[in-house]
Amino acid sequence: MDTIKRWKQERRLFVVSITVLAIIFYLALPLSLSVIPDTMNKPAIANVSWAWIYAFMQVLMTWLIGWVYWIKAKQLDKLVDRIKQEEAE
Rank of each mutant, 00 (worst) to 15 (best):
R6N: 01
K72Q: 15
I45W: 12
W7D: 02
A22T: 09
I83V: 12
D77H: 15
E86M: 10
K8N: 08
R12T: 09
A46W: 15
V16C: 07
L31Q: 05
E86S: 07
L27R: 00
N47Y: 07
S34P: 02
V80D: 15
L13H: 12
I18A: 04
K72M: 14
V35W: 08
P37R: 04
A55S: 07
I71M: 12
I4G: 05
E86C: 10
L79W: 04
A44F: 09
T19S: 15
I4H: 02
K74N: 09
E10W: 01
T19E: 02
V15L: 12
V20D: 01
E89D: 12
S49T: 14
S32P: 01
R82V: 10
D77P: 06
I65T: 03
L76T: 04
M61Q: 06
V59A: 13
A22S: 13
V68T: 09
W63S: 14
P43V: 05
V15M: 11
E10R: 10
I18R: 02
I65H: 05
D77N: 15
V80A: 15
E10S: 06
K8R: 13
Y54I: 06
A46Q: 12
K72R: 15
D2M: 08
L27M: 11
R6S: 05
D81G: 13
W50E: 03
I65V: 14
E10T: 03
D2H: 06
L29Q: 03
K72I: 06
Q58K: 04
E10H: 06
F56V: 12
S17V: 02
L29Y: 00
W7G: 00
K8T: 03
R11W: 08
T3S: 05
A46T: 11
I36W: 09
S49V: 04
E10V: 00
N41V: 00
P37G: 00
M1R: 09
F25D: 00
Y54S: 04
F56K: 12
I23E: 05
Q75M: 11
M57H: 07
W63R: 12
V80T: 15
T19L: 12
V20P: 01
R82A: 09
L31K: 08
D38C: 08
L27V: 05
Q58A: 09
I4F: 07
T39C: 07
P30M: 01
P43T: 05
I4C: 02
P43S: 07
L76K: 02
V35Y: 12
N47V: 09
Y69R: 14
T62Y: 09
L31W: 07
I24P: 04
E86N: 13
G66F: 07
F14V: 03
I36Y: 08
S32N: 14
T39E: 11
T62Q: 05
V48Q: 07
M1N: 07
I4E: 01
L27G: 06
L29G: 00
E87M: 11
W7C: 04
W67L: 13
A46G: 08
F56E: 09
